[in-house]
Design a protein around this nucleic acid. Structure first.
Lengths: 219, 219
DNA sequence: ACTTGACGCTCCTGTAGGGGGAGGTCCCAG
DNA sequence: CTGGGACCTCCCCCTACAGGAGCGTCAAGT
């Protein structure tokens, strides 16, 4: 197999850019069969087009070069299949994420109000009496927690005949996201101190500065 | 609004990393309300959390920072909607591509033969007589061109009663891909010189070195 | 007033996969 | 032997940050 082609022709054969070929050489992923010592010229055999084609296909699937190497250098074809399958799983989850993003983005575009889902403002809140329930919430249960909390506090306030002194609110004590959970408090401002009933307690919140956001619509 | 927070607290408020916030500052995308001349400390107002939140949301949709700036700095909300829509289109085409890639990757995994769709080898081919038809093909029509070409050549060879001297093959004179088309020749080797009939011509191909690949199965 | 520890700063490097260009060398045909 | 195209090595550029080095600052406790 003495038929050697320089990089430009190999590039046309394989539809890989010359830059890419040099890059793969540098990484040891696709090393030319012959490299002229003095001139540095790269020469490939026709047979190397196989590997080049495989790389091109896998790259078109957005597979990282390191994994391509792993798949191609695996002696066992099952190992190669495993690498491919791992990548397939990644692609699938990416696909999922993109689908969700599209839905979300569609909602963003529909609602013309602007880009902001919420509008954060800063308020000085005077000291106030509230009836409140404290719960531990995770990202998964927060919807349920909030609605059951609202129900519980609303019922307790109603039974006590207390007068509401403003819109109900939720206080988040921690950042709640995919990885970490934390406490939330569902609170109804009341006109007079609230005695407490069951899990629902009465407290006096001191005056403070809060960052607040108003949510409209369903949970 | 004199309530200023340093970068660490702002980072926790907005769930943007400190690194990201500094990056957005450097790009002028989200510039702190106050930067201390002597210490360089960044201080943000609570109100800036709005813009930060918008950035966070749009980044979670993989929107480039430049487009986020474009959308947020647009006075006209319609312009912002257009930017979002453009991004939606991009996401959709990405989604499409990923779906196709998944199908393709699935096929790659199923067929255990290895990663290679084709296997390129190099052969020395002696001079031979062929009956051939030459066609101009594009990526879109190549399947049709090849099958009709096979039919035409096969019929002409059969009518002439010529003996086939080997498996039929296709010669590509140019690279044919999405952007460019070119000529292809469908050729049947024949034992004796072929006279030609209609579009099907007889020629003698000289001895040469070819890179060939064998395709099994349907077109 | 001083220390300490958390927090903040800038600057540098690295990531994946190359693109683009400068400046110089090599090869092949006429 | 000369021209031009092909090829070489460096180097900087891109996204959207992350990680770390090395050093300055802020606030609280002593």
């Amino acid at each position: 197999m003495e038929n050697l082609v320089p990089v430009g022709r190999f590039s046309k054969m394989t539809r890989l850019s010359v830059k890419a070929l040099r890059h793969y050489d540098a990484l040891g992923l696709l090393v030319p069969a012959v490299v002229d010592r003095s001139s540095g010229y790269r020469y490939y055999t026709y047979g190397q087009a196989n590997r080049a084609e495989a790389i091109r296909v896998l790259r078109s699937l957005d597979m990282p070069l390191e994994e391509i190497r792993e798949a191609l250098d695996a002696d066992d074809p099952q190992v190669a299949a495993k690498v491919l399958d791992r990548h397939r799983a990644r692609l699938e989850s990416e696909l999922d994420r993109h689908e969700r993003m599209l839905v979300f983005l569609g909602r963003l575009i529909d609602r013309k109000e602007g880009v902001m889902p919420y509008d954060v403002t800063v308020k000085e809140v005077p000291a106030q009496h509230v009836a409140a329930i404290r719960k531990h919430a995770t990202m998964a249960t927060i919807g349920q927690d909030v609605s059951s909390g609202f129900a519980a506090v609303g019922e307790a306030v109603g039974r006590a005949g207390a007068q509401m002194a403003g819109p109900p609110f939720i206080v988040m004590f921690d950042v709640i996201d995919e990885e970490s959970d934390g406490d939330i408090e569902i609170a109804f401002p009341v006109a007079v101190p609230f005695a407490g009933a069951g899990d629902v307690v009465g407290e006096e919140l001191p005056a403070m500065t809060v960052a607040s956001t108003v949510h409209r619509g369903p949970y």
